[in-house]
């Protein structure tokens, strides 16, 4: 059975392995590839909060869905305005 926990776990592992693989290839080949790897890695935590948000939405837990949305919004604003 596919659980949301299992799915988040899979996304995290896929994200970090993709980042590690691209960064390693980039180390020997070109820094552009490494750059994409680092970007993939940095996006993984954002994705994790989004998936947690979807998890709460599926459980009709709207308060926690709102919290997850708020966290993502603050992260995006904060990182664009260079505040965090």
């Amino acid at each position: 059975m596919v659980t949301v926990e299992g799915l988040i776990s899979w996304v995290l592992r896929a994200g970090v392995l993709t980042g590690a693989a691209l960064a390693s290839v980039g180390y020997f080949a070109s820094s552009e590839v490494a750059w994409i790897g680092v970007l993939a890695l940095i996006l993984t935590p954002f994705l994790r909060v989004m998936m947690a948000g979807i998890y709460f939405l599926m459980k009709r837990d709207l308060a926690y869905f709102g919290l997850a949305a708020y966290v993502i919004m603050m992260l995006v604003i904060g990182s664009f305005l260079h505040m965090i």
Binding site: E5, I8, S9, L12, R13, G15, V16, L41, P45
Partner: peptide
């Protein structure tokens, strides 16, 4: 910071499961 993200994602995949 890259290290913290990697550590948190790797460990998180185990802890969440």
């Amino acid at each position: 910071l890259i290290a913290v993200i990697a550590s948190s994602s790797t460990a998180g995949s185990v802890y969440i499961k």
